[in-house]
Design a protein around this nucleic acid. Sequence first.
DNA 1: AATATATGTTAGCATAAGCTAACTTTTTTG
DNA 2: CAAAAAAGTTAGCTTATGCTAACATATATT
Lengths: 125, 125
Amino acid sequence: MVMEIYKSAEDYLETILDLTKRNGSVRSIDIANERGFSKPSVSVAMKNLRQNGYISVDADGLITLEPQGLAIAKKIYERHVVLRNWLISLGVDAKVAAEDACLIEHDLSAESFEAIRDFVTKNPS
Amino acid sequence: MVMEIYKSAEDYLETILDLTKRNGSVRSIDIANERGFSKPSVSVAMKNLRQNGYISVDADGLITLEPQGLAIAKKIYERHVVLRNWLISLGVDAKVAAEDACLIEHDLSAESFEAIRDFVTKNPS
DNA sequence: AATATATGTTAGCATAAGCTAACTTTTTTG
DNA sequence: CAAAAAAGTTAGCTTATGCTAACATATATT
């Protein structure tokens, strides 16, 4: 059975990567605070990610990205950065650009994303 | 109470506008065939759109966009066209561009959409 | 006219993803 | 050390949006 990865899972993995970079370590409560979700919502989401091998959680509750989870997190993170920078280059406010990047970073096909990335690369703002 | 309009509702309204342009008239079954949804799914969705004043349905089952519904349909349709053309101008395959436009046309803020529209207008492919 | 097909509806189910309430467990602090 | 605070979990609810099964109604064909 092929495990499908959902938008919310992608977002959680991206958030874990982001918080790891910023704070050095991540636990459920940090994700809840960062995203504005309740503790139970994050708890259940982490349980799913753990059961599917995307993350591991040590005895102290510290969350680590497993290789498969890290790969997804990096992919979404790259998309986020590229899309945000591209919108900013078109004159969109940085905060709005970041929000919109969050909303579309999951949906774009690889083909479209790569076309945008190439465009941004060739037309630096 | 402010009625919130959901992505699926926006998509249905856009589909109704599209089919009206293409075929002259629309009924539930046309939408089901066009979108690949079951008849009951469309039936329930049309009931909601009707109850919220977005569409009307005559005795023969022909669907008409009411002013509020038409406004939303046009908005999403314009977004679709602009986003699709923009992706095509970046070298994305037309079919993929249309699919991706469908996925992101609901999420973009007005600010980002207008920035893209301006860019496309000033840089015709 | 009778049967077959097409269309529409209702009821009930599934799933993703959030929530609160209530609980346990762990950590901190006075 | 005892009490309080913080963190995590479980159970059960909600909502959007799709589905199938079963039925009703309308249209078309023999």
